[in-house]
C-alpha cells in the first residue's frame, strides 16, 4: 500500500469544556489534576463529577509531576500516519505519585533505557500555539 505523500498533522486533543483549565495550565508548564472536596480522592482525567463519590465539587490541584512507569512500549513500525516520522517513540502509562494514571510519552532518553516501575518526572512539549502536552522523562539523579 502506498504511503501518503503528505503526512497528516499531529492529532490535537479534542477538548471537553470542563477540561480547559488542564490545557491552559499545561501551556504554562503546570500539570493539574482534580481532587474531590467531599471524599478527597484524586482524579484524572478531568471530570464533571467525582468518579469515586459522585460529588460535583472538584478542585484543581497541581500535581507534583513525579511518578513511575506502569507499562510502556517502543513503537518501531506501523505507527498511525501522523506518527510515522517519530519512530521509535515510547508510549507509556504513568502512575503519578498522587495515585492517578495517564497515558503519555517518555522523552529525553534512549527508548531502550525505559523500564517498568522506573521513576519519571513531567516535562512539557509544545504541540502548537494552543496545545502543550505533558510528557515524562527519567528522573535525573
Amino acid at each position: 500500500m502506498a504511503t501518503p505523500d503528505a503526512r497528516p498533522a499531529k492529532p490535537r486533543p479534542i477538548v471537553n469544556a470542563w477540561a480547559q483549565p488542564f490545557w491552559d495550565a499545561a501551556r504554562a508548564g503546570r500539570l493539574l489534576i482534580q481532587r474531590c472536596r467531599d471524599c478527597g480522592e484524586p482524579c484524572f482525567y478531568p471530570r464533571i463529577a467525582c468518579p469515586n463519590c459522585g460529588a460535583a465539587a472538584l478542585d484543581w490541584v497541581e500535581a507534583r509531576g513525579r511518578g513511575s512507569v506502569y507499562s510502556y512500549t517502543v513503537v518501531q513500525n506501523n505507527a498511525p500516519s501522523a506518527f510515522t516520522a517519530d519512530v521509535p517513540y515510547v508510549v507509556a502509562v504513568i502512575r503519578l505519585e498522587e495515585g492517578v494514571q495517564m497515558l503519555s510519552n517518555i522523552v529525553d532518553c534512549d527508548p531502550s533505557a525505559v523500564a517498568c516501575d522506573m521513576a519519571v518526572e513531567v516535562t512539557f512539549q509544545r504541540l502548537d500555539d494552543e496545545f502543550t502536552l505533558p510528557k515524562f522523562r527519567p528522573v535525573r539523579r
Binding site: 486533543p13 510502556y72 512500549t73 508510549v91 495517564m102 497515558l103
Partner: peptide, 26 residues
C-alpha cells in the same frame, strides 16, 4: 481510543496490546 487523552500521544492498537504485554511479562 480517547481523542483527548490518548490519540495525541500516538496510541493505537499495537501499543494497546504491547502495554499489557510488557507489564504482564514484567
Amino acid at each position: 481510543i480517547s481523542a483527548e487523552w490518548e490519540v495525541p500521544y500516538g496510541q493505537h492498537y499495537s501499543t494497546v496490546a504491547a502495554l499489557a504485554t510488557t507489564r504482564y511479562q514484567y
